[in-house]
């Protein structure tokens, strides 16, 4: 408890890291919910990896151009990384989303290929970059220790933008996701709402990767949403529970990492994995899995009336 109070204290040296982790923890599951509902879980794996490849490429460009600079000292450097992250993520998500809408080929195959190629490209770039050892690998592993006030503010503003957009347009985004035909008959511009959702996903993933790395981003995008889906009875419960789980897990994960001197990213993700396992057991024992609920309701109300 003492350690937890210390972590939450405004004087705590790594407070920006704590705040950023919590922000990402609260925000990522809210867009992750759409990935789960649209059965695009693998996109949640591929996008953070593609985003981190974008960071690697963007930070390598000065080197390729023969410009020498210190990676950690410049805000301009951070902006270049952000541009690389968001550029790669948005391009990938729009291309993958377009192919998804056309419904051709195997989505899992495309996403799997995108993931593995992005991962390999990151390794290739880093292997030829002498600045890599200075910190990029830490970032890509999810080592949340060097977050400036500007980074924190930027993350907070962008995530607030995502949250406000989701709050304002959730009914259109859910309608288009749930029943596209109905959306068309009601005169909704399905392509527009799809692109808005992809932009929100891209922006959130880019920011999360830049702040906390691809590992935590993936963990917080999907696992809280998967846990919440086991217990939520309504869409509102689903969103609130997923977000709350993400935020609280990020704080607890940071506390565990700080107490036992673990890297924060892996600690967060393992914690979420353990919680998912416990949630499955509890849901199974309590008969809350969707299959059991359906079966119980059918028995109670007649087979197919």
């Amino acid at each position: 408890m003492e350690t937890l109070l210390q972590i939450l204290s405004p004087d705590f040296l790594l407070r920006n890291s704590v705040y950023t982790s919590i922000l990402v923890g609260f925000a990522c599951p809210l867009v992750g919910v759409f990935l789960v509902l649209r059965r695009l879980v693998f996109m949640g794996v591929a996008l953070p990896q593609i985003s981190s490849t974008g960071v690697a490429v963007a930070l390598s460009v000065p080197l390729w151009l023969g410009v020498t600079q210190d990676v950690h000292s410049s805000q301009g450097e951070h902006m270049v990384a952000f541009i690389g992250s968001i550029g790669f993520t948005l391009t990938a998500i729009l291309v993958l989303g377009f192919l998804e809408r056309r419904g051709r080929g195997q989505p899992e195959g495309r996403l799997g290929t995108a993931y593995v190629v992005a991962a390999a490209l990151s390794i290739l770039i880093l292997s030829k970059n002498r600045f890599a050892e200075l910190g990029w690998l830490d970032m890509l592993k999810g080592e949340v220790i060097t977050i400036s006030n500007v980074d924190l503010l930027l993350t907070a503003i962008m995530l607030a933008l995502v949250l406000i957009t989701l709050a304002l347009f959730h009914k259109e985004l859910f309608l288009v996701s749930f029943d596209r035909t109905m959306a068309v008959t009601l005169g909704k511009n399905v392509a527009f709402w799809d692109i808005l959702l992809y932009l929100l996903l891209g922006l959130t993933v880019s920011l999360a990767v830049l702040s906390v790395g691809p590992l935590i981003s993936f963990g917080f995008l999907l696992i809280p949403a998967l846990i919440a889906h086991l217990f939520a009875r309504t869409m509102r419960q689903f969103l609130l529970l997923a977000s709350l789980l993400g935020g609280v897990s990020s704080l607890v994960g940071f506390w565990i990492a700080y107490t036992w001197d673990f890297p924060v990213g892996p600690a967060d993700v393992v914690l979420l994995g353990v919680l998912y396992g416990i949630a499955w057991l509890v849901a199974g024992i309590a008969g809350l899995t969707p299959e059991k609920r359906r079966g119980r309701y059918a028995v109670k109300n007649g087979a197919n009336g």
Binding site: V36, L37, R39, K171, E172, F174, L175, S177, F178, D179, T181, M182, L186, G187, K188, H229, A232, R233, T234, M235, Q237, F238, P290, R294
Partner: peptide
Amino acid sequence: NLDPLYPFTGFDVALMGAYG
């Protein structure tokens, strides 16, 4: 045609008719 993954209630689904 409607994915059972979405935790909408019957009311939520019917309310979509008003979204237009």
